[in-house]
């Protein structure tokens, strides 16, 4: 029971991080970046490929590469699409996601690459007579630390203030002097950093990295930001968390029916979109203006 609750919380935290990465980029350019999943994938590949290096160096390299991919994807693709119909941007990100999957397949092969990353996180310990996995505890701790750091960045720093202002009204933010290119680049780089965190947690539990590694979690994080309200970062993170917890709960409660957990989740999304198009945390139907 305790293990199930811990699993639910750690899964929720993981999805919250992924949703936050999507939410950051959506905030500044109204783009649902489907290719966020491919940032998670490249980070996972990097962690596996550099497994023989000391963990800290491997992590640094991964963050650098992932942030660079995020930065370049904005510079070469999304920057040129700024201001076009959001539907076209969504399709473009879908396309970019496919491009990257195929490129990974060319570079790393279609078969999974695997390596044991951070082996000390695997295993379990006894607590009050119960066996608890180390990774679930570490995931929770790590998530809390990252969420706190992000919270500080967004709420207390000048960059965070600009991100929030740009998410609310980019035009006016620019009139006040917010540098659009720099801010959007910063949002992408941050989303790359978050993707690295997500990849690290994922890889510890499932080291079989294939070209589609990040797709699933991205779809679920997307569900999360829709549920939580896409236009606020807090909503996005909370929505991601809720999805993780619901999915975990469905998996426990549905028993043999757990294969249909996604259906229930998507059904929930449909209902929420119909009742509150801006997410359950929103005051109005904020998605309408998108």
């Amino acid at each position: 029971m305790i293990q199930s609750i811990l699993d639910a919380i750690s899964l929720g935290g993981l999805y919250a991080l992924a949703a936050l990465g999507l939410g950051l980029v959506f905030g500044v350019m109204r783009l649902v970046n489907f290719a966020h999943g491919e940032l998670i994938t490249i980070a996972a590949y990097m962690l596996v490929v550099t497994v023989n290096l000391p963990l800290i160096i491997s992590l640094l390299l991964t963050v650098l590469v992932t942030a660079a991919v995020a930065f370049l994807m904005e510079l070469t693709i999304y920057r040129r699409l700024r201001g076009v119909n959001p539907a076209i941007m969504l399709i473009a990100s879908f396309g970019l996601s496919t491009v990257l999957q195929r490129v990974y397949e060319l570079i790393f092969g279609a078969l999974p690459k695997s390596a044991v990353v951070a082996p000390f996180l695997n295993g379990a310990f006894k607590f009050a007579g119960l066996s608890i996995t180390i990774s679930s505890v570490i995931t929770i701790v790590l998530t809390v630390v990252i969420l706190l750091a992000m919270g500080y960045l967004v709420e207390k720093t000048s960059l965070g203030l600009q991100l929030r202002a740009a998410a609310a009204d980019f035009r006016t933010a620019r009139l006040l002097g917010v540098r659009s290119n720099r801010l959007i680049s910063a949002a992408f780089v941050l989303s790359g950093v978050l993707a690295t965190c997500v990849a690290f947690i994922l890889v510890v539990e499932n080291p079989e990295v294939n070209p589609y590694y990040g797709v699933n979690i991205t779809i679920l994080a997307l569900v999360g930001i829709v549920i939580g309200g896409i236009s606020s970062l807090r909503g996005a993170a909370l929505g991601g968390f809720v999805v993780g917890v619901i999915l975990s709960a469905l998996n426990t409660l549905l028993g043999n029916g757990r294969v249909y957990a996604y259906s229930w989740l998507f059904l929930l999304v449909l209902i929420i979109l119909l009742v509150r198009p801006g997410g359950f945390l929103s005051k109005g139907s904020e998605l309408e203006r998108v």
């Binding site: 600009q162 929030r164 202002a165 609310a168 009204d169 035009r171 933010a173 006040l176 002097g177």
Partner: peptide, 25 residues
């Protein structure tokens, strides 16, 4: 500087934060 039509203040941010945004320019 332009004060746009309809004022366009950031209603979700505090007065202090709105003023701080002015500093970016």
């Amino acid at each position: 500087s332009l004060v746009p039509e309809g004022r366009q203040i950031f209603s979700g941010l505090s007065v202090k934060e709105n003023l701080a945004l002015g500093l970016t320019g």
